[in-house]
Simulated scan of single mutants.
Amino acid sequence: MDKSVKNGPALAGHGAEAARDAIAGTIMDLQAHLRRSLTWDQGAEMAQHARLRIDTELDIYFCDPQSPWQRGSNENTNGLLRQYFPKGTDLSQHGAGELSAVAHALNSRPRKTLGWRTPAEALDGLLKSDMTEGVATTG
């Protein structure tokens, strides 16, 4: 067995390399100013954080142990995801279409913390403001 490939059990794609590849592949679709940092807990799936940092130029931070409040919005999102996938769910048993449908449902759900806008509306507003800030005026 090639030890350089082994990062602990990679069941359902939870190994460190699978996590690194999934994060890098997804986050690189964002505009550079939206992907400056990533805050993670102390999970073994981030054993490849140094390589992720190099590949994506992300600043990566880790929460203190047993301090989930340091990642409040993530913990809230985890709670929302549990409505669709109970803790311990093997996500590899769900197709990309089903996972995308859940992401769409959550991103279309108004949030109090966003002034009752949806996450999709908040991101759209941010992207539009970024576009107009860089436009020169004539006058």
Rank of each mutant, 00 (worst) to 15 (best):
L80M: 14
R82Q: 12
S4C: 10
H49Y: 15
R109N: 04
L99H: 10
L99G: 09
S129Y: 14
P110M: 11
L81V: 03
D90H: 00
R35I: 03
L11V: 11
Q93M: 08
T137R: 14
A122V: 02
G79C: 11
M46W: 06
T138Q: 07
L123G: 06
C63M: 10
G97S: 09
D41R: 03
K128Q: 15
L114N: 09
W69A: 13
H49M: 07
I27D: 09
K3P: 14
G72Q: 11
R36Y: 02
L38K: 08
A96P: 01
G15D: 02
T39L: 07
R117T: 10
T77G: 03
A103I: 13
D64R: 12
P110D: 05
R53C: 13
P68F: 06
I54R: 15
T56I: 10
G43M: 02
R82K: 13
I60C: 05
K112N: 02
M131N: 10
L30F: 14
K3W: 13
Q31D: 15
L81Y: 11
P119T: 09
H94L: 03
Q66G: 11
E98C: 04
G72P: 04
G134E: 13
A18S: 15
D29T: 13
E98A: 12
P65T: 05
S37M: 05
P65F: 12
N107I: 00
T26R: 12
L38V: 04
F85R: 00
T137D: 11
Y61D: 02
A47D: 04
E75Y: 07
S73W: 04
R82V: 07
S100D: 15
D41Y: 04
S108H: 08
K87C: 03
G15K: 00
N78R: 10
D2W: 08
V5Q: 14
K128S: 14
D90M: 00
T56K: 05
H104G: 00
A12M: 01
Q66A: 15
H49S: 11
E121L: 09
G13R: 03
S100Y: 10
D29P: 01
R36L: 14
E121R: 07
N78P: 05
S100R: 15
Q83D: 13
A120C: 05
D2Y: 12
S37E: 10
L58W: 02
L11M: 08
Q42G: 13
T39M: 04
L106C: 07
L52N: 08
A122P: 03
G139L: 13
Q31W: 07
P65H: 06
A122K: 08
R35T: 04
P110F: 08
K6I: 12
D2G: 10
T118K: 06
L38A: 06
S129E: 15
T89N: 00
T138G: 00
S129N: 15
T138E: 08
R109E: 01
D59I: 09
L106F: 05
G88Q: 01
M28W: 01
